[in-house]
Structure formats: C-alpha cells, structure tokens
C-alpha cells in the first residue's frame, strides 16, 4: 500500500567521458558545442568590448577616429572577424533551434541537413564580411 519510494542504493562510481576531440561529432553536435562556445565568447569579451566601442565612437569625434584607425590593422580585423563568426553562428544556430522547438525539421535527416546549413551559413557570412573588410 505504501507509496514510499525505495531508498536508492549507495552511489556507485560511474564511467567518465573525457574525450574532448570534436572530430567524431556529427554536424548537429558541432552546431551545439559551437553554439555554447560562441555564446560564452559573446558574453565575454564581445559584449563589454562592443559597449566600450559604442561608448568611445559615439562619445567624441577623436574616439571615433581612434577606433577607425585601430580597425585598419590586419590583426584587429582578424580578431573582429572571429568575433563576428561567433555572432553569425549563434544567430543561425539559434534560428535552427527555434524551428526545432516548433518541431520543424525535427526528424534525423532534415535536422542533419539544417545543421550543415547552419555551419555553412556562419562560415559564408564570415567570409563575406572578411572580403568586405579587406
């Protein structure tokens, strides 16, 4: 009659999985981990950097010119491009997740296709901005 749960046995040691290589992941797995990594990058350092850039460029003409000159350096362009990729990937992957939440393309085959599309779109957008910046 009692509905009391049976006590759990003592915690046994469970196997741990420490393979951090991404090479074995299928496209949806890559999209997922890149979504997380890009999100973390966007929180830090992109968000404070972007706010600082807005603060400096909108604040005074001297600040605008300084940032303008700063962005002519190839190394700065390259880093900014990496941050742009984080935004682009997070954007495209996010749209894919929103559609998956609506059960749109939820089956294995279309989900895999859309994952490849997200990876390609992120890379393509970055390439486009890169070409425009140089």
């Amino acid at each position: 009659m009692s509905s009391a749960p049976t006590p759990r046995p003592a915690q046994q040691s469970r196997p741990k999985y420490y393979d951090l290589s991404l090479a074995h992941l299928p496209p949806p797995g890559l999209v997922s981990i890149f979504h997380r990594v890009s999100g973390l990058l966007l929180f830090f350092p992109v968000l404070p950097l972007l706010l600082y850039a807005m603060y400096a460029t909108l604040g005074s003409e001297a600040g605008y010119t300084r940032w303008h000159d700063f962005f002519t350096r190839p190394a700065v362009k390259l880093i900014a491009l990496a941050f742009f990729w984080a935004y682009a990937h997070h954007f495209f992957a996010g749209i894919r997740y929103l559609l998956l939440d609506l059960h749109w393309g939820i089956a294995k085959a279309p989900a895999r296709t859309s994952a490849v599309a997200v990876l390609v779109c992120g890379a393509l957008a970055t390439l486009l901005v890169g070409v425009r910046a140089w």
């Binding site: 997380r36 999100g39 973390l40 966007l42 929180f43 968000l47």
Partner: peptide
C-alpha cells in the same frame, strides 16, 4: 538571454 545562457553553462 545572456543570464540564462551563462547560468546554464
């Protein structure tokens, strides 16, 4: 959005 994301991480 960032708060939820960072909390999850």
């Amino acid at each position: 959005h960032a708060w939820i994301g960072m909390r999850d991480i």
